[in-house]
Simulated scan of single mutants.
Amino acid sequence: MIDPPADIRRLVYLGTPHESVPFLEALATAGFDVALAVTRPDKRRGRRAEPTPSPVKAAAQELGIPVFSDVDDVLDADADLGVVVAFGQIIKPHVLNRLAMVNVHFSLLPRWRGAAPVERAILAGDQTTGVCLMEVAEGLDTGRVYRRVEMPIAPDITAAALRAELVDIAVPMLVDALNEGLGVPEPQQGEPAYAAKITRDELRLDWGQSAESLHRQVRVGGAWTTWRGKTLKVWAAHPVEGSQPPGELDGVLAGTGQGLLKLVEVQAEGKSRQAAEDWLRGARPTLGDRLGS
């Protein structure tokens, strides 16, 4: 692992999903010479579908930036620095020993190292989060931190909306840091917490839990329960005061272990998303019907 030079002008960029695109576009707009981009290979969305490029590949091609899928290609780019944002691949030591790299990470490290920091912060009920610009090291998000910006987590914000807000504050942070010089990074301080990828089982709504806890699962996206033996996704809801048996419905109000969860938008198995009131008119709950059964 090596340190970046004081003057950074020529970059390579490594990223994949939509949230990576604004960083690439901002670097190009700011006048940095982006020698190439590395992203995942094209993927098919169906058996007969044409391979689809990643959002970063599509954006790079629009900017006239060469695109590769092998990380080792950065070694021939004669770059000053590699910039990594939601790349999704391990960068091996032989690359880090030849080219300094920084990573934009969507948490206040060392809290929530790993793949799903935004989702884990919401599930844990964190009040604040932020972004870090850190050096890429061999360990999982263990590198020293060049810059960090903190922000509150609004009580009703979804993971998607929170990630968008973090991108909005992280893009200028990255550009300013590269223009002004990275400076001396600081070691991470505090007890690490790890943000493993969210599993489907973690998003199953247990109606014996509190309404606040269930609300956090819904905010992550993809929360689900069952209704008459079939999957019912809950896309929007919010907690309200009240009490009734867990899973029991009174209109759009669902009983929980503590408080009520007001259903706002749901999706029955094999159907499109719809307002909870519209779903109820078709579902026609009867005595004894409960969510989770």
Score class of each variant (00 low, 15 high):
W112P: 12
W112N: 09
W112Q: 10
R113V: 13
R113E: 05
R113F: 07
G114H: 10
G114S: 10
G114A: 07
G114I: 04
A115M: 13
A115Y: 10
A115K: 11
A116D: 07
A116I: 06
A116T: 04
P117H: 05
P117T: 03
P117E: 09
V118I: 14
V118E: 03
V118H: 06
V118K: 08
E119K: 10
E119S: 15
E119A: 15
R120H: 09
R120Y: 12
R120S: 07
A121V: 04
A121D: 04
A121L: 09
A121H: 03
A121P: 01
I122P: 00
I122K: 05
I122V: 13
L123D: 10
L123F: 10
A124C: 07
A124G: 09
A124W: 09
A124I: 04
A124S: 15
A124M: 07
G125H: 11
G125M: 12
D126Q: 10
D126E: 15
D126K: 09
D126T: 02
D126H: 10
D126W: 05
Q127A: 15
Q127T: 14
Q127R: 15
Q127L: 14
T128K: 13
T128L: 10
T128P: 00
T128W: 13
T129D: 02
T129G: 02
T129H: 02
G130H: 04
G130F: 08
G130P: 00
V131E: 08
V131H: 12
V131C: 14
V131G: 08
C132T: 15
C132V: 06
C132P: 14
L133R: 12
L133K: 12
L133E: 07
M134L: 14
M134Y: 05
E135R: 15
E135H: 14
E135Q: 15
E135Y: 05
E135W: 04
V136N: 07
V136H: 07
A137Y: 03
E138Y: 07
E138M: 05
E138K: 13
E138R: 14
G139W: 00
G139C: 06
L140A: 13
L140Q: 14
L140W: 04
L140P: 03
L140F: 02
D141N: 05
D141M: 00
D141E: 01
D141H: 01
D141I: 00
T142S: 06
T142K: 06
T142N: 00
T142G: 04
G143T: 06
G143H: 03
G143R: 05
G143I: 02
G143C: 09
R144D: 14
R144M: 07
R144V: 01
Y146I: 03
Y146E: 09
Y146R: 12
Y146L: 08
R147W: 01
R148E: 13
R148Y: 11
V149L: 13
V149D: 08
E150G: 04
E150L: 03
M151S: 11
M151R: 13
P152F: 06
P152C: 03
P152H: 04
P152M: 01
P152A: 02
I153M: 04
I153A: 02
I153L: 03
